[in-house]
Computed example of a mutant assay.
Amino acid sequence: MFESKRSKLIFGIIFDLIGMASYIIPGIGEFTDIGWAPVAGYLMTKLYPGKAGVAAGIITTIEELVPGLDIIPSFTIMWVYNYFIKKEDPTQVIDVDA
Rank of each mutant, 00 (worst) to 15 (best):
M1P: 03
F2H: 06
F2L: 09
E3F: 05
S4T: 15
K5E: 07
R6C: 03
R6N: 07
K8M: 03
I10V: 14
G12N: 04
I13N: 02
I14S: 02
D16H: 05
I18S: 00
I18W: 00
G19M: 02
G19I: 03
M20G: 08
A21I: 13
A21C: 07
A21F: 06
A21Y: 06
S22Q: 14
Y23C: 12
I24C: 07
G27M: 11
G27T: 15
G29D: 07
E30Y: 12
F31D: 00
W36R: 05
A37N: 10
A37K: 09
P38Q: 04
P38Y: 03
P38F: 02
P38I: 04
V39K: 09
V39Q: 08
A40T: 12
Y42K: 11
L43N: 09
L43Y: 06
L43M: 15
T45Q: 12
K46R: 15
K46M: 12
K46S: 07
L47R: 01
L47F: 11
L47E: 12
Y48I: 02
P49C: 06
G50T: 10
G50S: 13
K51D: 09
K51H: 05
K51M: 06
A52D: 14
G53D: 09
V54K: 15
V54W: 13
V54A: 15
A55Q: 06
A56P: 00
A56V: 00
G57T: 11
G57V: 10
I58M: 10
I58R: 01
I59E: 04
I59S: 09
T60D: 05
T60Q: 11
T61E: 04
V66I: 15
P67F: 01
P67H: 04
G68N: 06
L69G: 05
D70S: 08
D70I: 06
M78G: 00
M78E: 10
W79L: 04
W79M: 04
W79D: 01
Y81R: 07
Y83S: 10
Y83F: 15
F84Y: 14
F84E: 02
F84S: 00
P90F: 05
V93F: 01
V93N: 09
I94N: 05
V96A: 06
D97T: 14
A98T: 04
A98R: 09
